[in-house]
């Protein structure tokens, strides 16, 4: 099959699975978790894989959107379908604000800066309990309303998540195929050179932060209504680091990589529920392995291996 057919088949499979898993609540739950993380991983991939910045405050932006959404639905009785886009829009503008340091800093300093920003956001979630209910968290978050009345739950909720996740993959693919996507990659490779070539690096980075924050925010709103409970710890630096790991493990800067990373890694915490400490160790080891041994990620290394083999074969053909 060609790549295109594979993509369509995968997309259809993703949309069909909620109906398939309907009878098994545990698998259906794990599936919905994977879908949400897929949205996040796509956003993270845009920034980390294509623009070349490692934003550790990613989860913080998602949290801001989730809390804002809950505030709007609870205190102003907005519908989820109105509250979530508005909250996401607000959080994305906030995300752009948080991305401003990237105009001066890159590499390690930007990552460190984003780490501090994330820490400040988490602390703010804890210390301003008017909106967040502090460490206690917010429970019994109502599911979104269904278009036919009542609450959206069970299989239709999962289907909604699957649709949004598939859309996020398509959107990501579309963005990187446009001129904007090419400019992103030019900035990633060398921002000084890109500037010289006439790319407005400042404007493009701001656009990138807006788009990426949108991914984070929508994922955050969906996370809140799916799990039904959030606390500051749902959106701390470890969450950001985990999403980063999905992208880096699967392969940054490819479309397939983050999907692989998410499918393989996202269910682990839910399967290793009672071995919380072990889960931390495992993800730590993975981070080290990825950094040292496979900087391209699983998919990236596969592509590299294929290219090398092709090159060798071409060379062999040329010689004979």
């Amino acid at each position: 099959m060609s790549a295109r057919r594979w993509a369509v088949a995968l997309g259809l499979l993703a949309l069909a699975l909620p109906f398939v898993l309907e009878g098994n609540r545990f698998l259906a739950f794990v599936y919905s978790i994977v879908m949400i993380h897929l949205i996040w991983a796509n956003g993270m991939n845009l920034l980390y894989g294509y623009v070349g910045l490692m934003p550790l405050m990613f989860a913080g932006v998602a949290g801001v959107a989730a809390y804002a959404m809950i505030y709007l639905t609870r205190s102003h009785e907005w519908s989820f379908w109105l509250a979530a886009p508005m909250a996401s829009l607000g959080a994305s503008l906030f995300g752009v604000l948080l991305g401003l340091p990237s105009l001066r800093l890159t590499g390690f300093y930007f990552t460190l800066c984003s780490l501090v920003i994330q820490t400040v956001i988490t602390l703010a979630f804890v210390f301003f309990p008017t909106f967040t209910n502090g460490d206690t968290g917010i429970n019994q978050i109502a599911p979104p309303q269904a278009p036919w009345g009542g609450a959206l739950s069970g299989v239709w909720m999962d289907e909604t998540l699957a649709i949004v996740a598939v859309l996020s993959v398509l959107l990501c693919g579309w963005i990187v195929s446009t001129r904007l996507g090419k400019r992103f990659m030019a900035i990633r490779e060398d921002d000084v050179l890109a500037e010289v070539l006439g790319i407005d690096v400042v404007r493009d980075r701001i656009i990138a932060f807006f788009i990426v924050s949108m991914f984070a925010s929508i994922g955050g709103c969906l996370f809140a209504v799916t799990i039904g409970f959030i606390s500051p710890r749902s959106f701390d630096v470890l969450t950001s680091l985990n999403i980063w790991l999905f992208v880096a493990f699967g392969g940054r800067g490819t479309l397939i990589g983050p999907i692989i990373g998410t499918i393989v890694l996202a269910p682990i915490p839910y399967l290793l529920q009672e071995l919380q400490g072990f889960k931390d160790v495992l993800s730590g080891v993975l981070i080290i392995v990825v950094t040292l041994l496979m900087p391209g990620g699983v998919w990236g290394e596969l592509l590299r291996w294929r290219d090398r083999r092709r090159a060798r074969r071409a060379l062999a053909v040329g010689q004979t």
């Binding site: 160790v281 080290i288 950094t291």
Partner: peptide, 14 residues
């Protein structure tokens, strides 16, 4: 930085 963040997680887990 990333490597030592990984180390941080391992130690925290232990």
């Amino acid at each position: 930085f990333v490597l030592t963040l990984g180390l941080t997680q391992i130690m925290a887990g232990i």
